[in-house]
Design a protein around this nucleic acid. Structure first.
Lengths: 220, 220
DNA sequence: TTATATTTTTAGATTTGTCTAAATAATATT
DNA sequence: AATATTATTTAGACAAATCTAAAAATATAA
């Protein structure tokens, strides 16, 4: 089965939304895709016709197994290309998303497999997100949100959730990267900001909004 | 100025045709693009409106300077990706064309520039065709068709014209690659075949059709 | 539980790129 | 030069992906 670029974009986005909410609804997908609800409905009909979707009118929808496999295929391509862009072409991690959005639609199984091997079969992309293998299998690691970490515990940054350029640019400013070691010193009741100490840097304060997007695991 | 994938494909093909014939006509472009003359006319109107084309109805057409620059941009991307696919992902040179056809439409100036640097700013692609630099400048080397080489002269294969998988597969069978050294021993009057001696291989015979697609320069 | 608000879908239009069939222009032939 | 042939363009249609505006279904609130 092959898909248009537009279909792939919808499939991928539905996948991401249903990871969080289970069932997805038309308006939230429309918002995420920066399009209109009517356009979403149109596409839902197509995806249902291709048997990728559980969808009853007015009831919400989600990908079935075939749909999930298709989504993981796109996610795999996206993340492998991001890895290439950062590790080999030396792009900053906050600049690769829009290019990977284009590259992910290049269709050639052999290309993806060779790229994967060339890159050394990486398990995580430059934002810490897992790269599905060719069967759609994902490596999960135990990680916690930075807001849930007890004080003075050494942890390592393992991924970031909101991957907008704005967000990543901010982390770059704090000199926080994947693999960065830090500890939380204090939480301010006033606005939920955290005082943190990044290894080899002086302490600084990050907003609750930033902290909620940073995930960590026990220090290596 | 940015272009759709379809526009880029037309521009590139017009460029290749006008290299050979000067003015291009509707039917030959339609044949090359595997589409209908009417579709070509439709696109010609769009390209003229974008001021890329010298085009008078019924008179033939060709790219103007802006059009040529746009074409060289696409050619540059195509050939850089081919180089990447062969040199880094270890694809056979006869398998990369269709993938490069997709990759060439990914639009990001920074991507192309970084890819170029990553590859070491190569001047020729895996088929021996020159890779335009970012200004559209092309390195030309003196080369001759294999059918015009005098007997027993050592030469090096520098490019192949017809780059179909079929053609490249055939050269692979003869163990002929870019950089391969060989000499022509004899021409058979009967059908124009050439007896050639590839360095470190026993002599063999190639058809005139094959020979016409092989270009060489003086042995290194 | 009826009225109101929100969400979702349908109906119909638009754009891009394509097509077929017919018309028109250019070229070749007698 | 008149006619036949070939090349090109126009006219009108279609599919994909989108949109706006209106209708229908569902959810919420008085």
């Amino acid at each position: 089965m092959s898909f248009t670029t537009s279909e792939e974009n919808y499939i991928k986005q539905i996948y991401h939304l249903q990871q969080e909410t289970g069932l997805v609804n038309t308006n939230s997908l429309a918002a995420e895709m920066q399009t209109r609800a009517a356009s979403v409905t149109d596409m839902l009909k197509k995806l249902k016709a291709k048997k990728l979707l559980q969808y009853e009118k007015y009831k919400g929808f989600k990908l079935n197994e075939a749909g999930k496999k298709a989504a993981l295929d796109v996610v795999r391509k996206h993340r492998l290309w991001e890895y290439f862009l950062v590790e080999h072409l030396k792009f900053d991690w906050d600049k690769v998303h829009s290019i990977a959005e284009q590259l992910e639609h290049v269709s050639s199984e052999e290309l993806v497999q060779r790229l994967d091997n060339f890159l050394g079969n990486p398990l995580f992309d430059p934002h810490g997100d897992p790269i599905p293998d060719k069967h759609g299998k994902i490596t999960v690691i135990k990680q916690q949100n930075l807001t849930d970490i007890s004080f003075k515990k050494n942890v390592t940054v393992s991924s970031v959730r909101n991957q907008t350029e704005q967000m990543l640019d901010m982390l770059k400013h704090y000199n926080i990267n994947l693999g960065t070691q830090l500890m939380v010193l204090k939480r301010f009741e006033f606005d939920g900001s955290l005082e943190i100490k990044v290894l080899k840097q002086s302490a600084c304060i990050i907003s609750e909004q930033v902290a909620k997007n940073v995930f960590v695991h026990d220090a290596k």
